[in-house]
Design a protein around this nucleic acid. Structure first.
Length: 505
RNA sequence: GCAGCUGUAGCUCAGCUUGGUUAGAGCGCCUGACUGUGGAUCAGGAGGUCGUUGGUUCGAGUCCAACCAGCUGUACCA
């Protein structure tokens, strides 16, 4: 007898279903972040998940085909559409389209799903949530400093203690200046500069030696895979290493060695010979740092770090990155480092792509999904299991209307409640169901109770505790642990007492 | 994309080295003991194209090849 071919139920890789606990955790996080952003005077705006591909700037050069990394499709008029891969490019489109109606500088925030068609990995999904804040129309370093402060405040509002995160600040012009000074400026070296930036970005993972290999002839990893290097000569590598990679950042503060912006800046100042572009970047960094210090944000929250790269393509000046410093173990006992959970920077070119005038902008983005994974793992989120509704059981199937009425009474009193909708034949199954729903209690009314105008209320939470002491099934059933009778008219009141006893009111 | 590892019940896995009747375990699920009560216990039951295709062989879950999928690392990452 051949079985009919069943369709295999399967989730596409890199995508995730989310249950009640995760949804609740996300809601909690989003609300916390929103409060901070509102406090800073930002207002919400939402754009759709789909944009014209050219608005996202993701056509491959010299081809009329979008980048493979974005999910794209053609409209019936042949125009390419794409799912957004971040929230910044759509905002730039929105601002350009509504430029006349916005009060500039325009501060806005929004959160939503973004999509990337890339190989997924641990903690990396093809659909994930970001929460962005942007200030459009201000070139002031105060706008940048504010982003950094807001990032720090947000981390603390989410329950991450000071010292377990850090907001790192850098300026792209520093790196550009250094690269110019070693002779790889100009259009013809654009590709090479990318390789250099990528190499520096890997400092935390590969260390100084690995980065130097990538700056030079290339690097072969443990699996035998070879990565081509930037082919710089020794003196070029030496300049980068001395200016950025080996830059001292540790200072003695009150007898302890700590990383400080002061130390980083002092060292950068000694490198002013690297050229005007480098010096521009340094001046901007100094300006931001002065504002941070004046506002009381010291190096334990926001810190200058010349090795931060981020967003190779569109950042033009200051860049920021939020890093979680805490370490923990995963289910299998392996150490987990969370690393970057957010970042941003100044993107002065992004809005002006649509406009005839320059429009400075700076923004910051939190990776909600990744941060949620981190917070869950360290137990800051989703620790408690959601309590289910009160379940009204069906004893006498002729009287479903009576039971439904009890449910309605509980609901009218703002108590989560539901009628058992399954097959009422086996009463035990109804309790099993209530147990699996994590119901705090069930309401029972059989013929005996009905005659006396009573109902039975069974406290499942208390009952589960009592169960541990009972070994035999007879005893279990006869004692009816944590169960009591009350007048039908007292139903709401008594249920409320049970909920209060467990802190659920 | 490149490399390594892994595909056996709903889940976690054993069996593969050394090919040999009916492919196992734990957990979960269903039924009953228990026609008015969750848990525990006991008894029973359902559930498998051994990732796919081809090859070697009298005989393949086991050996070989290709492919597919997953995981891990690496590359890319706006």
């Amino acid at each position: 007898m051949a079985k009919p071919q069943k369709l295999k139920a399967r989730l596409p890789r890199g995508l995730a279903d989310r249950g009640p606990a995760e949804i609740a955790a996300t809601r909690e996080m989003v609300e916390a972040i929103r409060q901070v952003y509102e406090l800073y005077g930002f207002e919400p705006v939402e754009t759709p998940a789909i944009e014209y591909t050219d608005a996202l700037g993701k056509f491959l050069p010299d081809q009329d085909r979008p980048n493979e990394g974005v999910f794209s499709f053609q409209d019936d008029d042949e125009q390419w559409l794409s799912l957004r891969y971040d929230l910044t490019a759509p905002l730039a489109r929105y601002v350009a389209e509504n430029f006349q109606n916005l009060a500039l500088p325009y501060r806005s925030y929004r959160y939503g799903w973004v999509f990337r068609n890339e190989k997924p990995g641990p903690g990396r999904f093809r659909q994930f949530m970001q929460f962005d804040a942007d200030t459009v129309g201000s070139a002031s370093p105060a706008a940048d400093a504010e982003m950094c402060m807001m990032a720090a405040d947000t981390m603390e509002r989410l329950g991450i203690p000071r010292g377990q995160y850090v907001v790192k600040v850098n300026n792209r012009k520093l790196l550009d200046g250094i690269m110019e000074s070693i002779g790889i400026g100009g259009e013809e070296n654009a590709g090479r500069r990318l390789t250099v930036l990528r190499a520096i970005d890997k400092l935390d993972r590969l260390g100084v030696v690995g980065v130097c290999q990538l700056l030079g002839s290339g690097r072969k990893d443990e699996s035998g895979d070879f990565t081509e290097g930037a082919e710089l000569n020794e003196s070029q590598i030496d300049t980068i290493v001395r200016a950025i990679i080996n830059a001292p950042t540790v200072d003695a503060v009150e007898g302890r060695a700590v990383e400080t912006s002061d130390r980083a800046l002092r060292y950068l100042r000694a490198n002013r010979h690297l050229g005007p572009r480098f010096n521009d970047g340094l001046d901007e960094l100094e300006a931001i740092n002065d504002l941070l210090v004046a506002a009381g944000y010291a190096s334990d929250r926001v810190r200058i770090d010349a090795a931060v790269v981020r967003g190779l393509e569109y950042y033009t000046g200051p860049v920021y990155e939020v890093e979680l410093l805490l370490e923990t173990k995963d289910e299998k006992g392996r150490p987990v480092r969370f690393g970057s959970v957010g970042g941003g920077g100044r993107y002065d070119g992004l809005v002006s792509r649509f406009m005839g005038q320059p429009v400075p902008a700076t923004g910051f983005s939190i990776g909600v999904s990744r941060l949620q994974a981190a917070l869950t793992l360290i137990g800051k989120l989703g620790a408690k299991k959601e309590t289910g509704p009160v379940v009204v059981t069906v004893f006498d199937r002729e009287r479903i209307a009576d039971y439904q009425q009890m449910v309605a009474k509980l609901r009218a009193a703002n108590i989560r409640a539901e009628l058992y909708l399954g097959n009422p034949k086996n009463f035990g199954n109804q309790l099993k169901y209530a147990d699996r729903r994590n119901a705090p209690c069930v309401v029972i009314q059989g013929g005996d109770e009905k005659e006396k105008g009573e109902v039975q209320i069974k406290d499942l939470i208390e009952g589960a505790k009592a169960a541990a002491a009972i070994a035999s099934n007879e005893e279990w059933r006869e004692t009816r642990p944590a169960q009591f009778a009350c007048k039908e008219s007292e139903l709401v009141e008594k249920v409320r007492e049970v909920l209060a006893r467990h802190g659920l009111d």
